[in-house]
Design a protein around this nucleic acid. Structure first.
Lengths: 364, 364
DNA sequence: CTGAAAGCGCTTACAG
DNA sequence: CTGAAAGCGCTTACAG
């Protein structure tokens, strides 16, 4: 037993059961189950496998099958602040992969620009296909992606040749958010707009404008404020905005690029005693866990993030199954998921009289 | 070119360069670099590899080397609420693995009890070793772990035979937290104690008691309240506790089992107008990102979570390197990291007069 | 110092 | 219906 530290192999199981490795293979993996191996032989093999705690070696199987039964997910998942948006998509991916009996390997990138080359390293046989979470690849980088591995993207920032993209109707989401505010009577609506250059931010601004113009309201460029997409940025930007506008009338509502920004923004308002929704309405975007864990709970635009993650897995597995030859065409239309307005406690009618912006208290 | 959809192999590179696959292997992986392949041949091979975008196939290499250069991490990482504690450890793991040129595969478990068997499936050659994050395995389950894969645990709930455990000095952390409160003058200290049956909770209670007794203060069992370890639980438990004690004197401080609980607890206090730290001091545990992102920022006990994650990788790689034969002894002493008190804004001296607990307002 | 051979553990045609 | 052979892509001894 000098093999105590090696995992049992098919050959070991065969030897134990007095049959060939191949016979063991036949009964231990569904493949050739149909061929009738004598029931008692089958029992003997099963017993031997159990006794030796046999598990098929994944790398050997992958080498023979050209299939690892593992999908990869790449995204900027770690980082200073927790990204609920990515985590919720990831949770949809993990659960769908698991129902398809596929493993999932998560590759953490820090920066799409700099880490693009690493994507190639992942496509070395250890995964059968790769899901890109909110990739920021240039078209040139995307063109260099290995052609032997199928890719699916979620909310890609730019179309990528031969890559299927899954997104949600963000423009319409922004439209729904702002229309809801307008219908409650809001006229002076601030927009914390995410990061300039991000397609998601541009779409929110487009929806914002469309909602105003379809209500016959004027658009005031100065109410669009770039923020990034994190709670910290939401908090900082709101603090700065308030102290830059001390003494002026408070907008009656803020439409935030996502829930994280909305939460940070709410915290900064609370610091100076501005109440949500009594003094100002706040609306978020995404409907992540975070939206339900605040007080007041956040009115927001729901993107079906888990479902989008699941769909990414389904479509990727379809691509993987479609053997070799068939590559997607250069331009492939995106899959677009609908969004919906979720009304909770952070929005209401505007206050009857204008609030003035108080002087900011000093904060650590 | 009917191989367009296959990745280039060593044989392809060799053919392109007019040499054997083996010669290509020698120059493309450091291994036999020493053997002098004529510099111009070497150039030709390098050029061919670049032209064909050759990447060594990970599964073939793993099969030949019995080494995947990938470490696994298993833990209950997803779930309803974000676990900053695990994410911060994970971030230490990812960064150390990356400096060691190792990939990391994350396996998400939902429940240690039920998913213990899945750990076996991960040890099928796809990883070289596995880090268990806060495993809740029984000794019997631990004994069944495959012996051909090295394991390292972080904050295991019970000692596991042959498995190295990395932990922090939680008992001392609790002692430091409570001593700091006592030194400020606090006498009536509530403890939100985590989950009963968890070693971490027991150690916090032990440290709590030791701090009281070494200050000559009495211990009041009724001030120990089980909470779980999430923000939601902290919020709910504090709400319930306040409404169960309406009209009674407010404790002057709460020592919480972790930062998440402290944050939830602070939120519940804010809901009824109790101010931190003016009316009550709050202290957390862990010093995760979350502790610095609240207002007021949280006084807490710092565990070096990232460093602990890195160390887990280092020790695991050591185990992997120590070939076959050498298994760890049955009982292996844990690696214990020190903790420290981080004073921020959520603690201060107790108020000069007793606060009474107000009636809870109704909350969604 | 270099090339041909054998093997990692599995699977898939292909003969008996 | 079952067994022996060849191969997945790489690496590691082992002869020339």
């Amino acid at each position: 037993m000098n093999r105590a530290n090696r995992a049992a192999t098919l050959a070991d199981v065969g030897r134990e059961a007095g049959v060939s490795a191949m016979a063991a293979s036949a009964v231990l993996n569904g493949a050739r189950t149909s061929s009738r191996i004598a029931p008692e032989t089958r029992e003997r093999i099963l017993a031997a496998a159990a006794k030796l705690r046999y598990r098929p070696n994944a790398t050997a199987r992958a080498l023979a099958n050209r299939r690892m039964n593992t999908i990869g997910v790449a995204g900027t998942i770690d980082g200073e602040s927790v990204n609920h948006y990515l985590l919720e998509i990831l949770s949809g991916i993990l659960s769908s992969a698991s129902t398809h009996q596929q493993n999932t390997t998560v590759f953490t990138l820090h920066d799409w620009e700099r880490d693009a080359e690493r994507l190639h390293d992942f496509c070395d046989g250890r995964i059968d296909g790769l899901i890109l979470l909110a990739p920021m690849l240039t078209r040139a980088q995307a063109r260099l992606l290995p052609s032997h591995t199928p890719f699916v993207a979620l909310h890609a920032n730019a179309p990528m040749p031969h890559v299927l993209n899954i997104e949600s109707d963000e423009e319409h989401g922004a439209f729904l958010a702002v229309r809801a505010l307008v219908q409650k009577g809001h006229r002076r609506i601030l927009h914390f707009a995410g990061s300039p250059g991000r397609i998601g931010a541009e779409r929110r601004i487009a929806g914002f404008k469309r909602a105003l113009s379809s209500a016959g309201l004027p658009f005031d460029e100065s109410l669009i404020v770039p923020t990034g997409f994190t709670t910290e940025e939401g908090r900082m930007v709101m603090r700065r905005w308030l102290s830059a506008h001390t003494g002026q009338p408070l907008p009656t509502a803020v439409f935030c690029a996502n829930d994280g920004v909305a939460i940070g923004c709410t915290e900064a308002l609370a610091e100076v005693g501005i109440r949500v929704p009594e003094d100002i309405s706040v609306i978020g975007f995404d409907d992540t866990f975070a939206a339900r864990s605040t007080a007041p709970q956040l009115t927001t635009i729901r993107q079906p993030l888990r479902a989008m993650g699941s769909r990414a897995v389904d479509l990727l597995l379809e691509r993987i199954g479609a053997s070799g030859a068939s590559q997607l065409p250069e331009d492939v239309p995106p899959v677009v998921f609908p969004v919906e307005l979720i009304e909770r406690a952070s929005t209401s009618v505007p206050p009857s009289t204008d609030r003035l912006i108080p002087a900011a208290s000093v904060r650590v």
